[in-house]
């Protein structure tokens, strides 16, 4: 069997807007190994959600997919999701094979439908199942995601539940047709830290039970450390560093990853100053020339302003797109503070 269950090759997406074309995804490759968790990290506007919307066919109408392939491996078959029509995607893939948990549970649930109806809706669409069986299954799902008196809750409306409970319901809906891949788009950003911890544990348990492969989209490196096996760091529509969680956290190579890691507050130091990456992310309305991060990068060299760096290989799993890894580049040490932080662990 194939090692990966989902693999994206050279995806490139543009949005047409009134103010011009926005080149949101500028050629990315991404692999999701079977049964593993992959995280995509980046700031808002870096293109992490757009990538996943391309996978599920939920891109807005003003988007143009310039190039790329998204392969989904089902049994022995290799399906390019981008060649399927929206109808085929909805019938065969979405929900049944690939399913999604959205950021804000208040807006992703229908306020006029009961919880039970929303969970069973997908089952009726994808499977031949009787109403009684579907409801029985829905109750089981609610129990699986940790909701007490599930039978009673089936008749509740979303507004009768708290934020954490709503997100559990959204997860139950996503799992209703036994998907193989679960995409979580900032599943805990709208929630409190305590509830976030519970939801992350829940997703992890379910992943083990059902053998899911999970993609996490997040901007919180703390969450990444908790859940991810592999990490992709995105910046301005490109993946600039990819590796296992250990490689990214203990041996980061890209200056942007250094910046992100240093900007995370650390509970263990007494330092009272935070490192911050100067400036703000580029506007993709104007296509950046060279390395998009160059203007915020104090290690930037002349070549960064002219040619965008390719991916340099560091190990079997670890790649980074920065000219600093070129054999001719000057040796640059990790920033002292980050080095101390990593050594302390």
């Amino acid at each position: 069997m194939e090692k990966n269950i989902l693999s994206i090759e050279n995806l490139d997406v543009t949005f047409r807007t009134n103010s011009g074309n926005i080149h949101a995804i500028r050629g990315i490759d991404l692999n999701l190994p079977r049964g593993k968790t992959v995280a995509i990290v980046g700031e808002s506007g870096s293109g992490k959600s757009v990538t996943m919307k391309a996978v599920t066919g939920l891109l807005d109408d003003n988007s143009v997919i310039n190039s790329g392939k998204i392969f989904y491996f089902q049994g022995g078959k290799k399906i390019d999701l981008l060649t399927l029509t929206k109808k085929e995607l909805r019938k065969k893939i979405n929900g049944q094979q690939i399913s999604m948990v959205f950021q804000d549970p208040m807006t992703s649930l229908d306020p006029t439908m009961t919880i039970g109806a929303q969970i069973t809706e997908g089952m009726f669409l994808h499977k031949k199942i009787s109403k009684a069986d579907a409801e029985k299954k829905a109750v089981e799902l609610l129990k699986l995601v940790g909701i007490n008196d599930a039978e009673k809750r089936m008749k509740n409306f979303p507004h009768q539940l708290s934020g954490g409970m709503r997100q559990r319901v959204v997860i139950a809906i996503a799992l209703s047709c036994e998907p193989k891949v679960l995409i979580c788009d900032e599943p805990t950003t709208a929630l409190d830290v305590t509830i976030q911890a519970k939801i992350l544990d829940l997703i992890k348990n379910i992943q083990e039970k059902m053998g899911l492969s999970v993609i996490y989209i997040t901007h919180d490196l703390g969450v990444v450390a908790k859940v991810a096996d592999f990490v992709n760091v995105m910046y301005a529509g490109k993946i600039i560093e990819v590796g296992t969680a250990e490689e990214i956290f203990y041996d980061p190579r890209h200056p942007y990853t250094w910046g992100l890691l240093s900007a995370m507050p650390d509970l263990e130091t007494d330092d009272d100053r935070l490192y911050s990456i100067p400036g703000s992310p580029p506007n993709l309305l104007h296509e950046p020339v060279g390395d998009a991060f160059a203007t915020r990068n104090k290690f930037a060299m002349k070549i960064d302003k002219k040619i965008s760096p390719p991916m340099f290989r560091i190990s079997e799993t670890h790649f980074a797109a920065t000219w600093l890894l070129h054999p001719d580049a000057p040796k640059v040490e990790l920033p002292a503070e980050l080095k101390k932080r990593i050594e302390r662990r």
Binding site: T194, Q196, A197, K198, V223, V224, E246, F249, M264
Partner: peptide, 21 residues
């Protein structure tokens, strides 16, 4: 409980940590 829920950007520690309910 609140402190135990704050995620730490360190996979070795974070994957072992238990959340105190």
């Amino acid at each position: 409980s609140l402190l135990s829920a704050v995620p730490i950007p360190n996979p070795a520690v974070e994957k072992q940590r238990k959340f105190l309910n």
